[in-house]
């Protein structure tokens, strides 16, 4: 057969094979991480540092984003509602949008850049400088030692950050309504409470837990599978941010379809 016919088919084949292989490796990492959960002695001492890094240090950027999201939501809602819809619906829109969608998703996306990239770069550097191999030769399970504390910390701290971001975003929208839109507090609160269900908060928490798991485990995955020196670290970092952002958006749609 001619090369011009064979080459595209070969290309497709190798692309599919490598895709399947990377799903396999990711699954392997997942199973390994679940197994490594038992080795509490190995990840236990490190989880606090990771929680501080992922949760506490991410708080400023998350709250900054939430503040401006809240302001913009309030302003745009009032712009859209002029005349046709009562102004107290600004409260409804700010509350619902913040808690259900923008709080978790914007925080997730921001932290995929901040936390995910950081993890990918850190583990990538450890991989290319053979620190990961060194851990193995010193009888440390890299998954228990490196992956589990990060992923666990992500799953625990993401919801915390998102809860705070939700609250800050709503308060920002509230203050905007008071100062810029001539609304009163009772009006805003009436709208905020109108369609509020406590399930909304649970949904936000569930979303952020999955986003936390995603961002950290994708970061770990790309970090641990880095090859090719400093350039490889850069590549892993980029891939990690792109992949986790995409997964977050897909998960977002999926969870909305399944849980709402």
């Amino acid at each position: 057969m001619r090369a011009s016919v064979v080459a595209p088919i070969q290309g497709l084949g190798s692309a599919v094979l490598s895709a399947v292989a990377s799903v396999g490796t990711a699954g392997h990492l997942g199973v390994g991480a679940l197994r490594a959960l038992r080795k509490g002695d190995m990840w236990g001492p490190h989880i606090l540092a990771q929680m501080a890094r992922i949760g506490v240090h991410s708080l400023p950027i998350a709250l900054f984003i939430a503040t401006f999201t809240g302001i913009v939501l309030a302003l745009q809602a009032s712009y859209t509602f002029t005349g046709a819809i009562p102004l107290y619906f600004v409260g409804t829109l700010v509350g619902k949008t913040m808690v259900l969608e923008l709080g978790p998703v914007l925080t997730g996306l921001a932290l995929s850049g901040r936390v995910g990239a950081n993890i990918a770069a850190e583990l990538g550097t450890m991989r290319v400088t053979e620190q990961v191999d060194a851990l193995e030769t010193l009888a440390y399970d890299p998954i228990a030692y490196l992956v589990v504390p990060r992923v666990l910390a992500g799953a625990i701290m993401f919801p915390m950050v998102v809860l705070m971001a939700n609250a800050v975003g709503i308060v920002a929208g509230w203050l905007t309504s008071l100062w810029l839109l001539d609304m009163s507090s009772p009006e805003f609160l009436k709208g905020l409470r109108l369609f509020f269900r406590s399930w909304d908060v649970w949904f936000s928490v569930i979303k952020s837990v999955t986003f936390g798991l995603t961002v950290t485990s994708v970061g770990c995955f790309f970090g641990l599978h880095t090859t090719g020196g400093a350039e490889g670290v850069g590549r892993s970092t980029t891939h990690s941010v792109v992949a986790s952002s995409m997964i977050i958006l897909v998960l977002d749609a999926f969870l909305a379809a399944v849980l709402l």
Partner: peptide
């Protein structure tokens, strides 16, 4: 494997020291 590795020391090409730890902590890892 982890049990076996206690009997094997590995000296890496670029030392592969853990950047975030002191020399003492590095040596004491195993």
């Amino acid at each position: 494997l982890y049990k076996l590795r206690r009997n094997v020391g590995y000296v890496f090409q670029f030392a592969a020291l853990f950047d975030s730890m002191t020399i003492g902590e590095n040596v004491g890892m195993g």
